[in-house]
Computed example of a mutant assay.
Amino acid sequence: MAIGWYLAVSVIIFCIGLSGVLVRRNPLVILLCLELMLNAANLALIAFSRMHGNGDGQIFAIIVMVVAACEVTVGLGLIVAIYRRKLPIDVDELKALNG
């Protein structure tokens, strides 16, 4: 398969994630859409790595997966803290944790 197909799928997945981040107001959905965007970047990195015949893109993809795992951990921790304080869940209404 040509690299163009991989990049086309990557762009489509990234655009779906970007539209979800911009449109949705639920923090869990926003985290899921951010994960979609990071996975699209991983797909592009792997495609370029395969095109050039080296493993650099795969190493960067692993680093992106580690960053994504850290982002989800911190994000879910914040969401649990918000639920425990009974603050509004809507991202537009939430200004700070006021701790």
Rank of each mutant, 00 (worst) to 15 (best):
E93D: 15
W5V: 10
T73R: 02
G99H: 13
N98W: 12
I13S: 00
P27M: 05
V72G: 00
E93K: 11
A44K: 00
S49P: 02
I3V: 15
R85C: 01
L94E: 01
L31I: 05
G53P: 08
V72W: 02
M37R: 03
L22M: 09
Q58E: 15
I79H: 05
S49M: 01
G75T: 06
E35K: 01
S10F: 07
S49E: 04
V29E: 06
I62F: 15
I30W: 02
Y6I: 06
A96D: 07
Y83I: 07
S10C: 05
L38Q: 13
K86L: 09
G53T: 03
L94M: 00
A96C: 06
A81C: 09
I13E: 00
L43G: 12
A2E: 15
I82Y: 01
R25V: 15
S19Q: 11
N39C: 14
L22F: 09
I79A: 04
V21I: 12
L94H: 02
L32G: 06
L78A: 06
Y83Q: 12
A41W: 11
L97R: 02
C70W: 07
E71D: 15
S49C: 03
L45T: 05
I79E: 02
L45F: 14
E71S: 12
E93S: 13
V66I: 06
V11H: 06
L87K: 02
C70H: 04
V11D: 12
L94G: 01
V11C: 08
G77C: 02
P88E: 01
G53F: 08
E71G: 14
Y83V: 08
S10N: 04
L97M: 03
E93R: 11
V66D: 05
L78R: 01
G55R: 12
N26S: 07
V9R: 02
C15S: 15
N42H: 08
R50K: 15
V9I: 09
C33S: 04
I79D: 01
I3W: 14
A47D: 04
L28Q: 11
C33Y: 00
G77M: 03
A61I: 00
G55V: 14
G75Y: 09
I16P: 00
V23Q: 14
I12C: 05
I46C: 06
F48N: 04
G57T: 07
G17T: 00
V29W: 08
L34R: 02
L31W: 04
L32V: 08
L97P: 01
A41R: 05
F14G: 02
A69Y: 08
D90C: 04
V11P: 03
S49K: 03
